[in-house]
Design a protein around this nucleic acid. Sequence first.
DNA 1: TTTATTTTTTGACAATTGTCAAAAAGCAAA
DNA 2: TTTGCTTTTTGACAATTGTCAAAAAATAAA
Lengths: 187, 187
Amino acid sequence: MQQLLTHITNYAPLSNEAQHALQNCFEKITIAKHEFLLTQGQVCRYLYFLEKGALRGFYNLDGKEITHWFGFEKDFVTSFHSFITQEAAVENIQLLEGSILWAISKETLTQLFNQYHEIERLMRIAYEKYYIRLEERFVNAQFKTASERYENLLQQTPHIIERVPLGYIASYLGISQETLSRIRSKF
Amino acid sequence: MQQLLTHITNYAPLSNEAQHALQNCFEKITIAKHEFLLTQGQVCRYLYFLEKGALRGFYNLDGKEITHWFGFEKDFVTSFHSFITQEAAVENIQLLEGSILWAISKETLTQLFNQYHEIERLMRIAYEKYYIRLEERFVNAQFKTASERYENLLQQTPHIIERVPLGYIASYLGISQETLSRIRSKF
DNA sequence: TTTATTTTTTGACAATTGTCAAAAAGCAAA
DNA sequence: TTTGCTTTTTGACAATTGTCAAAAAATAAA
């Protein structure tokens, strides 16, 4: 929990009252490897902060699993589309490692927004950061070759290589596992 | 200006005071076709609301222009990365048509956030919407074929086809102009 | 360790998309 | 209308990446 508070007060300062309110509203969750935090068709009611562990978001397309993001320590994770719209999720969230998370429901978070302007500000800033991050991934996906995307992964997020099976990484990079294997063999 | 207020109060309700404050802080801008709203290297100090017209965002890569987004009526446009971080922009924003915009500076917007919780809420909600939109584009870019991306464009944003030269659209879809031409010839 | 299962690599070939050059079509200015 | 410029299309060929099948390597279970 201290990790969570430390992390978000990096975004913006928070009064003690707001910090206490947050502390009371997050619930600790421990989940084992391979378990699911969310399965497609469910509405994602929670925003999670990942204290320890790793997980992936994936959806099914033509019978194949498409892994489109990973979460690690200090990440906020959720199915953003489902959490924001409260519609059924098209994606699944599955644990890659046994993990410790802190969860807050959408209703509770909305109440906190109403009570504390500074918490809503925090969320606005968090969205800014996540927007920029996604924009970089988008440009990468759309306008770079498979090799460039892999090299980028090595430089920007090397921890992914160390903690995630190559099959998922290939999917994440938008290439086949075979192509990834060939790229790796000649770097 | 009325269009702007109508649009944003669709996101969330706004008190009369906040509406008036907003009205006073946006500045009207009229720009001709082919002119630039931003060029790479500049810091983007403004967030713009596009009342009438069309524009594109592009950056240079290996001597080529990569068009990665378009803006049309009722869009908020800016170089998000530069506007958020206040670092030099890597992208250019160029008018595709003569346009009418409303501009607000980052400093002014920040002041409004401090004065009106409801305006910061509006921004939080706007980011949510823009995040979802970008996420859809990302999934499209990374995991769909060129033809699928074009069909998607036809269905989701047909106005782009009608108002933007095919060369820019090809770039936007992440394919060569020749490939786009061939895809179109057999739809 | 031995066996079973999963993950990763390799080979052969096919499909997709890109590049370069030139022609055709469209548009604007004179 | 004619001329010049820009945009779009077409052809030939090359490069990239995908698919399928099988082998090899790594990991987990007995």
